[in-house]
């Protein structure tokens, strides 16, 4: 009897523990957020400020939160569409940056002279903030849409390029020796040794770049009037003193950024073998 009961109890106990653990994982951040919201609310009640408290924000943006999919033409669209069109821009700019960055990075990584010549230039351009590129992009390309794409491209390319170059340069001598002893042809070396070996570095670059390009799109859109996008949406809201709308958009931006990063991390685990993660 005792034995049977013990056997029965044991798994349920483990299940309990797991569930508890899971609950704890969710409850703790939720609790923290609630506390922070409370503090925010209290602060807005105490301090003389135009900034709305959380309750007021929800009240004022109830429509926006409930109906993200409405579309009244022009720039008057739901938050979902705003975010989506921003994401589209990011996707285009980022893809260009990835292709060009990885390609150039491999070249620079393989060629010592090229690397010596370009390294300082990369290091200078890399630190230029995305907003600083906006006027140049507008002056060069005249139109809002391509200029926004360019800003994303130019922001995202550096981490990809530099990390790829490092990855190529850091191919373990062992692998190069194997290639040399086997006298692998160039293409074979490229696809069987170089790319797989540099892949972890490339992915690190890609993951940093996606965060940066999301940052850049907001900055770019804010100064580019008349386009659909979450950045301009914020700017527009500010012009109309709709602070609550801005706050909701910020939440959206943060959530999307987080999602994008998680997505890259997930792709990384799919592609890279265990040892290279």
């Amino acid at each position: 009897m005792t034995i049977a009961r013990k056997q029965f109890n044991k798994p349920s106990f483990i299940l309990d523990k797991k569930l508890k653990q899971r609950l704890d994982d969710i409850a703790t951040p939720l609790g923290t957020i609630l506390v922070l919201l409370l503090i925010w609310q209290l602060l807005t009640m105490i301090l003389p400020t135009d900034l709305p408290g959380p309750i007021k924000v929800v009240q004022e943006t109830w429509v926006l939160i409930l109906y993200p999919f409405f579309d009244f033409g022009g720039t008057n669209k739901g938050l979902f569409w705003q975010v989506l069109s921003s994401l589209q821009r990011v996707a285009i700019g980022y893809s260009f940056a990835a292709v060009v960055g990885i390609g150039l990075g491999i070249l620079v990584g393989l060629n010592k002279r090229l690397s010596k010549g370009l390294d300082p230039i990369f290091n200078i351009l890399r630190t230029v903030p995305p907003l600083a590129w906006v006027p140049i992009a507008l002056a060069a390309l005249k139109q809002n849409q391509p200029a926004a794409l360019f800003v994303i491209f130019i922001t995202a390319i550096w981490p990809i390029l530099i990390n790829t170059a490092v990855g190529v340069r850091q191919i373990p001598q062992d692998f190069n020796n194997v290639a040399q002893v086997l006298q692998l042809p160039r293409t074979e070396y490229f696809f069987k040794i170089l790319i797989p070996s540099a892949l972890p570095y490339i992915f690190t670059g890609l993951r940093i770049a996606i965060g940066l390009s999301w940052l850049a799109i907001i900055a770019a859109e804010i100064v580019m009037s008349g386009i659909v996008g979450i950045g301009f949406f914020i700017w527009n809201a500010y012009q109309n003193s709709q602070i609550s709308e801005i706050i909701v958009s910020l939440v959206y931006i943060g959530l999307v950024g987080w999602l994008l990063d998680s997505l890259m991390a997930w792709v990384q685990t799919l592609i890279l073998p265990q040892s290279q993660r």
């Binding site: 373990p172 062992d174 692998f175 020796n177 002893v181 040794i193 797989p196």
Partner: peptide, 13 residues
């Protein structure tokens, strides 16, 4: 002249 390297040098991928 095939080499067996000290640390195996197998391609992990």
């Amino acid at each position: 002249r095939m080499v067996v390297f000290q640390n195996y040098s197998l391609l992990p991928w």
